[in-house]
Design a protein around this nucleic acid. Structure first.
Lengths: 238, 238
DNA sequence: CTGAAGCAGCTTGTATCCAAGGATACAAGA
DNA sequence: TCTTGTATCCTTGGATACAAGCTGCTTCAG
């Protein structure tokens, strides 16, 4: 019976997972800026771990393109690579548009109910200007559409591909009249899926995905030092 | 001037990279079979390394879906997950077909020359039944098409997505009259690209990618113990 | 005053040690 | 003979110690 006391550390790799999500979130949200130095030792101390699990986290972040590990020199938050962002857009648009057409054909009533619930939650999050929550709900809706299309595994491909894209998208949140436009598009997509209208769903999805993308030029200008090839290598510790 | 003597270990992580490619290749080629146990210690000893770099390799292979690490139990070569293979096919077909259309529009004479060279090399490899070489050349051609389409970063997305697909494809090589069919399709694609015929290129590419995929049912039957949910968990060491 | 050499402090890479948990073989008892 | 408890060996997870290398500052020589 003495098996309940070690619930805290039941999952061996859970600690590293926590660190990964923390750093991942901080980079996507722009709290850690490109060029900023990250030290395995510092991070390990901060979380009360040793370097070993932190190194695995760093390796994953490096594969995702979020950080760059330079042997014997240091680890730095990676800048946003514009060509890579373009290709990510290509991947996402191509896969999601085909999938949303399938989703429109396959959608069942319960599935449509889930989508409408997500829409309501998004509206609430947007009203309270809780962008982080909205960000998560937006992602949940796109993933749900992928599941409805019968392609659950494809979402993790998109997750990997849109890594850099997310950073741009987050920079664009909080700007202008966007929120209402995004919500209108979400509603339109769900309506088309509910009406089993693949063509309509694809049309709006394409416009939707390109909305965020269209702003990339403006964003790159506004946040110049977040992007590749724009100098400032802020090495200094705070 | 005494800087040439340490060429062997110039790149710190090169050793791990070597181990990764070795194991990756062995799994894709089916030399390591699903369920087979892999030990960090054994692998480390075999390559003359410590467990630390091997653990990072295992982590990567785990993320790729090639192996499964079970804490405190062991590490095993993962079975081929059929639904994941279907989704990989979806990803690859969707992305490559759109890209090959762009490639057909954008192809320059030098690019077409590269493709024709690859075709010739493939023919030679196929004639000598050097399947591993053919496998690499096949991959090189698809990647080249992606580059011609102006989407170099997309290839690494496909690389990740088609991980499981490759294992199936390798199992199918060596069977039947396939080789000639594949070569005919490759020639057809290159001809369409050279003729700037996007529609034709997409048509043949679709057929091409589905050719290998169509055999999955037969392959799953012929190599039953390579796939998920088919019993045999061969733990025993040789 | 300028420049180069050397040293100190940092980084990541690797090796090794200990901890915790699961699988299995074996022995003892019913 | 079957069941059960135990001991041992195996695995991976994590922590720590050591090695190698780059950066930048200091210092000394010209």
């Amino acid at each position: 019976m003495a098996r309940l006391d070690n619930l805290a550390k039941m999952a061996p790799r859970a600690t590293g997972q926590q660190v990964y999500e923390d750093l991942h979130g901080q980079i996507v949200r722009g709290e850690l800026t490109p060029g900023q130095a990250l030290s395995e030792t510092k991070v390990a101390e901060h979380y009360g771990l040793s370097r070993t699990p932190v190194r695995e986290v760093f390796w994953r972040l490096g594969e995702d393109g979020f950080i760059r590990v330079i042997p014997q020199v240091g680890t730095f938050v990676a800048p946003i690579n514009i060509p890579a962002v373009y290709d990510s857009q290509f991947v996402r648009e191509t896969l999601e548009c085909r999938a949303v057409a399938d989703a429109a054909r396959a959608a069942t009533d319960p599935a449509i109910g889930v989508l409408r619930t997500l829409l309501a939650d998004q509206t609430a999050a947007m009203k309270s200007r809780n962008f982080a929550t909205f960000f998560a709900l937006d992602e949940a809706m796109h993933r749900t559409l992928m599941t409805i299309a019968g392609r659950p595994f494809v979402w993790q491909v998109i997750t990997g591909a849109k890594a850099q894209l997310d950073r741009v998208r987050f920079l664009s949140l909080g700007d202008e009249e966007w929120p209402s436009m995004i919500m209108d598009q979400h509603r339109g997509i769900v309506d088309c899926v509910a009406a089993h209208d693949p063509a309509g769903a694809v049309r709006i999805m394409t416009a939707h995905l390109r909305t965020a993308f269209a702003a990339i030029g403006r964003i790159a200008t506004a946040h110049e030092d977040f992007f590749e090839g724009s100098g400032t290598h802020s090495d200094e510790p705070e």
